[in-house]
Amino acid sequence: MSFKLFELMLWAAGYTVVLSAISIVIGLTIGLCVCAAKLARSRALSIPATVFISFFRGVPLLVQLLLIYNLLPAIGISVPSVVAAVIGLSLCTAAYQAENLRGGFNSVPKGLLEAADMVGLSPWQQLKRIRAPIALRLTLPALVNEAILILKASSLISVVGVIELTRMAQNLSASTYRPLLFYSVAGGLYLVICWTVAGGGALAERLTRTSRA
């Protein structure tokens, strides 16, 4: 493989990372809202949140992507395929992240909030100073895990024509008749990316010190 082709693969790997990162951030934002809605006392909020989480976790990402990619033009919204792909990835990861966050919020020990209550912190101060920081720390490992899952899942956006790492490997193997080489290189690049994120996550976890509480 010439250096030129390898450079193309590297470029595509970068695109995969960028698209995944954008989806993770958008997904985290939507996930926080969905989690808040799910934890709300009002049924009008919690029921739609439950349905959202159940649907996007229950349907294969490939089907979600095909649906969104074809649905948007059908209802008169024409967007580039990369936008449809990011919307699909974001909605899917939002559902998983909402569940992770809910787990985090629910595992903050009740006693820590009682202690906050006793020293006079208002409900809002309790959320801001105690509940949210602890919940986010508890969610961190799940968030790193989710980032790795989305990096791998982003290979599916190749089917809607986004030229990320998998699609690039597909194109190059088709034009050079060397699928073994290009899919191996793609696999190797995915490995490097995933292992880097996992290592970074482990480091971040060690830096944010928490007790078991």
Partner: peptide, 29 residues
């Protein structure tokens, strides 16, 4: 606010230092 409480399980906030735990309410409340 005139009552203080000490719990069986301590209930210290794990993301704050000892001093941070003691000062939290002084600053925020």
């Amino acid at each position: 606010s005139r009552i203080g409480m000490v719990f069986q399980q301590f209930n210290l906030w794990p993301h704050m230092t000892a001093l941070g735990n003691v000062c939290e309410a002084l600053v925020t409340v």
